[in-house]
């Protein structure tokens, strides 16, 4: 029982990270049709800037941690907004070329991070509480899992609130549904493009800081490894669906943890197998629109 609970919470923590990456990816793809390969770079930048701040302010207390979360999110958001404004916008409506540009950007960015921070993983320190565990039903669960889960839930709630209740949120939702109609109504969708990129970048940056605490280190390859699972999550959840991303993130991560434990480290295969099954029986994903 305690193993089960432990696996469940570890899976939820990992799912939270997947969701933070996949939410932005899914929204960006839904609205703009861009597959953003640079999303991993946003995450890595967030992780590194968060770590730099924590290191320079010199404490492993809560304030430093909260500050690093904020700085990581801002760094991710700025990088993402820059990407959209300088690179993506020039290639409006040419989806494959937009993908190619993000591929180039992720190559260049990861190489630059290599140059600045080195290729070796940097091990990090969080508040002391992270090292402790909490007993739930006899399972000793590392506390950083809770932080990841809480942050992801807050991001999900904030995004849902934003999409449902604000003017720009409605424009984004309408744009995902039918972009040409929104344009025809005289609304400039391009502002919404920059906005989803910024939001996606902020979520990824936040995810970066959390991921560095979850895994215990920062490395230039951090983003790339999470990005691939985030891709799988977005396809399984249905491209463009935020709820789909949330559900799929949790399902994929929990499945992965359980398979890793009970089926001898085959978590990654089980996930790819799940992807294949979803594609065979529901090509548009769990909550995607059927085209």
């Amino acid at each position: 029982m305690s193993t089960l609970v432990l696996l469940l919470f570890t899976g939820l923590g990992l799912g939270a990270l997947y969701f933070l990456v996949a939410a932005g990816l899914s929204l960006i793809y839904g609205l703009m049709g861009v597959l953003n390969f640079a999303h991993g770079a946003f995450l890595t930048l967030g992780a590194f800037t968060g770590w730099e701040i924590a290191r320079r302010t010199g404490g492993d207390n809560w304030w430093t941690f909260l500050l690093s979360l904020l700085v990581g999110a801002v760094a991710g958001a700025l990088f993402a907004a820059f990407t959209e404004f300088v690179l993506i916008r020039r290639l409006y409506q040419r989806h494959i070329e937009q993908v190619l540009v993000t591929v180039g950007l992720s190559l260049a960015a990861v190489a630059l991070f290599d140059g600045i921070w080195g290729t070796d993983p940097v091990f990090i320190q969080g508040p002391a509480w992270f090292k402790e565990t909490t007993d739930i039903l006899g399972a000793r669960i590392p506390n950083d899992r809770f932080i990841c889960i809480i942050a992801a839930v807050l991001v999900l709630l904030a995004l849902v609130f934003f999409l449902k209740n604000t003017r720009y949120g409605m424009i984004i939702r309408a744009g995902v549904e039918n972009r040409s109609m929104v344009t025809a109504l005289g609304i400039d969708v391009r502002k919404a493009f920059t906005l989803v990129f910024t939001i996606g970048g902020a979520a990824a940056g936040l995810g970066g800081v959390l991921a560095s605490h979850y895994f215990g280190y920062v490395s230039p390859l951090l983003g790339g490894s999470l990005l691939i699972f985030a891709f799988i999550v977005t396809v399984i959840g249905g491209l463009g669906s935020l709820t789909g991303a949330a559900v799929a993130a949790v399902a994929v991560a929990v499945l992965q943890q359980f398979a890793n434990f009970y089926l001898g480290g085959t978590g990654d295969f089980v996930v790819v197998l799940a992807l294949a099954l979803v594609l065979l029986f529901r090509p548009s994903g769990l909550l995607g629109r059927t085209s």
């Binding site: 180039g104 950007l105 992720s106 190559l107 260049a108 190489a111």
Partner: peptide, 9 residues
């Protein structure tokens, strides 16, 4: 890779 990536963009 930084130079190649930039060149590619």
């Amino acid at each position: 890779l930084f130079i190649l990536g930039t060149l590619f963009i």
